[in-house]
Nucleic acid binder design. Structure first.
Length: 203
DNA sequence: ATCAAGATTACCT
DNA sequence: GGTAATCTTGATA
């Protein structure tokens, strides 16, 4: 697979759109993190949408704060937050400037650099098959495997450090829908989207 | 200043 | 299936 950002990465207009639409459109696309020595990449197989206005579970529901201000930037940034005293979660910011919405990445199937992901998660490069499934099947696990932390909060996804390849859209019939996981407010909204794939966090 | 909650994970029985 | 771990943030006083 060619991971070259110049010809293939998603552009601002893709991100500056409705969060539900962007969430579904991200399924099947390749999330890439590059630095001098490493190339990590994986297929996005599970996401959730968080939408400022009518969504009590969204970090932006009560307006802008120091933590969530990146979500109000124009679509195409990475919003990274820390939770439960242990885990980072990363989100793709969507919509126009001044509107707080983002897509949480919850499940990724490793495509490139799974040995480095294993090292980031477990401190060793060789892991058994069972642990391979556990590399990136959850939002906190993804950040750990990809080495994403608060230093990456606000990074521009149209740059060459972290970006998403513009592969084909997943077919509507292949997109599964459910309520979102791990929230206590606005639980009824059907804004979790995923594919039939082993790296989904929860059945 | 204090406090409760949290977009989770790993480990236990 | 249940729950401890762990600490940052935002709200309230």
């Amino acid at each position: 697979m060619n991971f070259d950002p110049e010809s293939q990465k998603l552009t601002p207009d893709f991100f500056q759109d409705n969060v539900i639409k962007v969430a579904k459109s991200l399924l099947g696309k390749i999330f890439v993190k590059r630095d001098e020595n490493t190339l990590l990449a994986g297929k996005i197989v599970e996401v959730e949408a968080y939408d400022g206005v009518d969504d009590e579970a969204c970090h932006c529901y009560r307006g802008m704060t120091e933590r969530n201000k990146v979500m109000f930037m124009p679509g195409g940034r990475l919003y990274v937050y820390f939770t439960y005293g242990a885990h980072f979660c990363c989100n793709v910011v969507t919509g126009k400037e001044g509107f707080g919405a983002a897509v949480l990445l919850r499940g990724i199937e490793p495509v490139e650099g799974s040995d480095i992901m294993a090292y980031n998660r477990y401190g060793v490069k060789d892991i058994d098959k069972k642990k391979t499934i556990n590399l990136t099947n959850g939002p906190g696990k993804i950040c750990r495997a990809f080495g994403i932390d608060r230093a990456h909060n606000g990074i521009d996804l149209t740059g060459n450090k972290i970006y998403i390849l513009n592969s084909a859209l997943a077919e509507e019939k292949d997109i599964l829908v459910s309520e979102r996981i791990g929230i206590k407010k606005s639980v009824e909204l059907p804004w979790r989207f995923y594919l039939n794939n082993n790296f989904v966090s929860k059945k």
